[in-house]
């Protein structure tokens, strides 16, 4: 499969700070990837470089086979929706019209439907929109552009849970009908987790985990109960975090659990709770064994 996006040894320094440190990855054509990490981890810097809006200090990036910066052939086939996107002082319908000129695959009908879904009124001035509605405008443009490469950087500031669900549902429906390469950065990891085919987790400018999202489910679990029983259950298993309170203990164990393991945990009176993707990401930075335990995605390679 051809890579829609490939980054090789990307490094970005700002004065004394390293925002991206030797980042390499490839995204296959036709996939939804989650770009995950804490605030300040380097997600926005990475997306800006992919969108050609910023230059790396070292390394290179190819989008649709070419360097994106100042490259009209690539930029017209790519849409980048930023968190808190700034707009000129125009009305919603003017912004949609301008987008229709820029993106060759623009679907005006879809833009209209999405705007209606989000209660985004065409004649409203953008500067009078709430934060959430400005996000809705960005999402509308991002999806209606039907661009081969679609980059979303935390696109839903100010959107409530209902509006975010509309976004997820529309994203899946659109992607199903018109597959494209989507990279979505988010800190609302658990609610978006099932959208992703694969995830790239960055921390302090470095990739700490790259895996098929589905393969991360059940890859680690919290075992809790009486200390002795927890120790008995986790003996010989890789253990990450361990907490103890009196005679009770709670331990994160890595590796999938078979039905026999679950039965044993029940017999020992232990609680077994699988870690969510969000909990995994929180711990991924200090957890070198995780990448090996997770199934590696097809087509995504470091």
């Amino acid at each position: 499969m051809t890579a829609a996006i490939s980054a090789t040894a990307l490094t970005r320094r700002y004065r004394d700070q390293v925002a991206l440190d030797d980042v390499s990855f490839e995204l296959p054509t036709g996939s939804i990837t989650g770009l995950l990490g804490r605030n300040g981890a380097g997600k926005t810097t990475l997306l800006r470089i992919l969108a050609g809006q910023e230059f790396p200090s070292a390394g290179s990036v190819r989008v649709l086979g070419e360097p994106p910066a100042d490259n009209e052939r690539v930029l017209s086939r790519m849409v980048f929706v930023r968190e808190d996107q700034a707009y000129p002082d125009i009305k919603v319908r003017h912004a949609l019209r301008a987008a229709s000129w820029f993106y060759p695959n623009w679907d005006a009908g879809l833009a209209e439907t999405l705007a209606a879904d989000f209660n985004l009124r065409p004649n409203k001035a953008i500067k009078k929109l709430s934060r959430g509605l400005r996000s809705a405008l960005g999402i509308t443009i991002g999806l209606a552009a039907r661009a081969e490469v679609t980059l979303f950087d935390e696109p839903y500031a100010g959107l409530d849970a209902v509006a975010r669900q509309i976004f997820y549902d529309r994203l899946l429906a659109e992607y199903g009908e018109h597959p494209r390469t989507i990279l979505l950065s988010t800190h609302l990891i658990d609610e978006a987790a099932a959208l992703f085919e694969s995830v790239v987790v960055i921390d302090q400018g470095r990739i700490v985990l790259e895996a098929a999202a589905d393969g991360l489910r059940g890859v680690a679990s919290t075992v809790s109960g009486p200390l002795l029983a927890v120790d008995e259950f986790t003996a010989g298993r890789p253990v990450w975090a361990r907490r103890r309170l009196g005679s009770q203990a709670s331990v994160v164990t890595v590796g999938p659990l078979a039905e026999a393991d679950r039965a044993r945990a029940r017999a020992l009176g232990l609680d077994l709770v699988p870690l969510t993707l969000q909990q995994l990401v929180v711990q991924a930075a200090g957890w070198p064994g995780l990448a090996g335990a997770a199934e590696h995605p097809e087509g995504v390679s470091a």
């Binding site: 997820y168 899946l172 429906a173 992607y175 199903g176 009908e177 099932a194 959208l195 999202a213 589905d214």
Partner: peptide, 18 residues
């Protein structure tokens, strides 16, 4: 179809296809 399952379960179509 893959897309119908993806929409119903709200999951990635590749996951449904698998």
């Amino acid at each position: 179809s893959t897309n119908e399952l993806a929409a119903f379960y709200r999951i990635n179509p590749a996951t449904a296809a698998r």
